[in-house]
């Protein structure tokens, strides 16, 4: 089989994924794969099916048909817990952080180190959070600051630092640059380069081709629940890519 041969290369392989929402045919047999250490840009208009695909991978939805292979093994992902256990981390714009909680409590959310009887090791949490942020080049005043006091870019940094700290194997970046200033966008793109340097695979979902073209190695374009294009960066220019996205959306 083709998959078997390439298994070792791929961290994620989704095969013939189908999903219905009531009478809406959201995913019509999509194949998707992500190599180790690779960054893939997932593109497409609203309603193209890219979020549905990603939500299946991160455990929010369960596919009606199709198989998922992770790290060479067939897996069943029923909940975000399952996904997280495999090493799939999601960095969502609004869904990654608890705004009123401190930085360190956010970084260790759901994975708090304990000293016994479930009592959190606050010192360890604070030290490791600051270290993880520093590795990203982010210097923040204190691990006790509530996330809501940070800038948009810094918040993405906290979520990305968390993914790296917990040695995620696959990071899903859902519109990480939306609603950010130019300076903050550059900051976030720098964080994503850090993910690449760590050898972590990532899926970068966005509407902004400029941001993704700078950073991704391969592009997957979706439209109406189908994968339309799967192309390496060296094979397309930014203009080609832009045309591909627009055309895909128009094709019946």
């Amino acid at each position: 089989m083709e998959y078997e041969n390439r298994q070792n290369d791929d961290i994620v392989r989704m095969v013939n994924i189908e999903k219905w929402f009531g009478r809406v045919y959201a995913l019509r047999g999509v194949d998707f794969h992500l190599k180790r250490g690779e960054t893939v840009g997932l593109l497409g208009d609203n309603g193209a099916g890219k979020s549905t695909l990603i939500k299946i991978l991160s455990g929010y939805h369960v596919a009606d048909k199709g198989d998922i292979y992770f790290d060479g093994k067939k897996v069943v992902i029923r909940s975000p817990r399952d996904a997280r256990r495999l090493g799939i981390e999601t960095v969502y714009q609004e869904q990654a952080l608890a705004p009123n909680l401190s930085i360190s409590r956010n970084i260790f959310m759901g994975r708090e180190p304990v000293k016994g009887f479930g009592i959190m090791d606050k010192k360890l949490m604070d030290e490791e959070s600051m270290q993880a942020l520093q590795n990203l080049g982010l210097r923040l005043r204190s691990p006790d600051l509530p996330v809501v006091t940070l800038s948009g870019g810094e918040r993405q940094g906290v979520a990305i630092a968390r993914a790296i700290h917990f040695k995620a194997k696959c990071v899903i970046l859902d519109e990480p640059t939306v609603a950010l200033s130019v300076k903050e966008v550059n900051e976030v793109l720098e964080f994503i380069r850090e993910i690449q340097r760590e050898g972590i695979s990532s899926i970068f979902i966005t509407h902004n081709l400029y941001h993704v073209y700078e950073i991704a190695e391969r592009f997957v374009v979706m439209a109406r629940g189908k994968k339309m294009t799967d192309v390496l960066k060296e094979d397309v220019t930014l203009d080609d890519l832009s045309e591909l996205v627009i055309k895909s959306a128009l094709v019946e």
Binding site: P80, Q95, A96, A98, L101, R105, G110
Partner: peptide
């Protein structure tokens, strides 16, 4: 306690983090 705060503050995030 951290799970309580996370759940109340941003349920989706808490859920995504496996709580």
């Amino acid at each position: 306690g951290n799970w309580i705060y996370s759940t109340g503050d941003n349920r989706d995030a808490a859920h995504a983090m496996g709580i």
